[in-house]
């Protein structure tokens, strides 16, 4: 089926098999290997991209259903040579080891910073909470890291958080 989507600001028209996930479309057809396949079931977060500005598991999105969407992958976070502040902070704080969960962590963090409202650890539901380390940990728990870089990931995100 023919679909058109914006990927990192570029319009891409592709003919896709309805069974193809957005993740496989990006990786196998559009040569964007930043989004990673870690579980293919929405259980690890390595495939996280921004769909219409919101973080989402690209493995759970069928490519056909994304017709007309705007997708941002980790390749689209930097402005040319200038890294996104999160990318720079991840390097500075050694917030990864093997690097396989990293693109998902970065897209997730970028999406998370713009997400409204409370989380499961917010005491007072009525107020929009400050992004304390506990809030960051909870909000980033959809991105698993088997190397165990979590404390460094939290430090890196906290540095960039408003």
């Amino acid at each position: 089926m023919d679909i058109t989507l914006q990927v990192n600001g570029v319009s891409r028209a592709v003919d896709v098999d309805p069974r193809m996930s957005l993740l496989d479309l990006l990786r196998e057809r559009l040569a964007l290997i930043g989004p990673k396949k870690g579980c293919d079931h929405g259980q690890c977060g390595a495939c996280t991209v921004l769909i219409d500005g919101r973080r989402a598991n690209s493995c759970l999105a069928l490519a056909v259903a994304m017709d007309g969407s705007e997708i941002v992958t980790v390749e689209g976070l930097a402005e040319g040579e200038a890294l996104h502040p999160l990318q720079a902070a991840f390097i500075e704080h050694d917030a990864f080891q093997c690097g396989y969960c990293t693109p998902g962590q970065l897209c997730s963090a970028a999406g998370m910073l713009g997400e409204p409202g409370p989380s499961a650890v917010t005491e007072d539901l009525r107020a929009d909470p400050e992004l304390t380390p506990a809030e960051i940990r909870e909000r980033m728990s959809g991105n698993l890291c088997r190397c165990g870089a979590y404390p460094n990931i939290v430090t890196a995100i906290a540095e960039v958080a408003p």
């Binding site: 929405g42 989402a56 598991n57 759970l60 999105a61 999406g111 997400e115 539901l125 909000r139 959809g142």
Partner: peptide, 29 residues
Amino acid sequence: LAAHPLVRVRYPMLARAVLAGASGQVRNM
């Protein structure tokens, strides 16, 4: 749903239940 002001104020049980489920990414979808 979980971020909606009326849900947070009037139905905190519901907001909390939604926030307890899955991950930020899954809840977005």
